[in-house]
Amino acid sequence: MPAPAIVAFLSDIGIPVRTGPVSGPTAVPGIAIADGGLVLGPAASIHDGDLLHEAGHLALLAPTQRAAAGGLLPGDLGAGFELGAICWSVAAAWHIGLDLAVVFHPDGYRGDSAWLVETYEGGTHPGLPLLEWAGLTWAPGHEPPGEQPFPAMRQWLRTTEPMDGGAR
């Protein structure tokens, strides 16, 4: 099972996590999106970083989309938000006090785990524009007086609905 600190953090910010059966296609083995939260297969071997990553996808969804989310997210909400979910999971890991090797474990990220750790720790933050667009953080140099930029978060979950009813 994932680290209790991760489950507590996700619960505290409003992403429910529960154990239950995981069936059907999933983006990450052993973790399903259901009813706007995350379901962990009881016998699954789950990487802590994968739990944060899937939570990042939920965090970027508009509130009504998040509440209804289940199964595989459609392309514009799933793969379309991939870099944002990665960047969100980095901010969450740092907030909890985890090493980025937890997020970018060797079994994921198509062999680019070490490169991603180096990239984020080096100050380049792929996906940050998506977090800023969603109102979750400020890019360095964009923060108003008195606010902190990424990796500090203004809020952990998107609160705005799309104006046109689409994915944004």
Rank of each mutant, 00 (worst) to 15 (best):
V17R: 03
A44R: 03
I33E: 09
F9L: 03
G97M: 13
V39M: 03
G127D: 03
I13E: 03
P74H: 13
L38E: 11
L72K: 04
A85Y: 06
D12L: 00
H125E: 15
P16A: 15
H47C: 11
A68G: 04
A85S: 10
V28E: 10
L116D: 14
L128S: 06
S45P: 05
G111I: 04
L77W: 08
A32K: 02
A32I: 00
A67V: 03
G24T: 06
I96N: 01
V90S: 09
H57T: 03
A32M: 07
A43T: 14
V90K: 04
S11L: 11
L77M: 14
G108T: 13
I46P: 01
S113I: 07
H105T: 07
D76T: 11
H125D: 15
V102C: 07
P16L: 12
G41L: 13
I96T: 03
T119E: 14
A69W: 03
V103P: 00
G71L: 00
I15Y: 12
I31E: 12
G71V: 00
A69K: 06
L131V: 05
Q65I: 08
T119C: 15
E121S: 09
G127V: 07
A32D: 08
P74T: 13
L130K: 15
P126I: 03
E54R: 06
A67T: 09
H53F: 04
V28A: 11
I15G: 12
P29E: 14
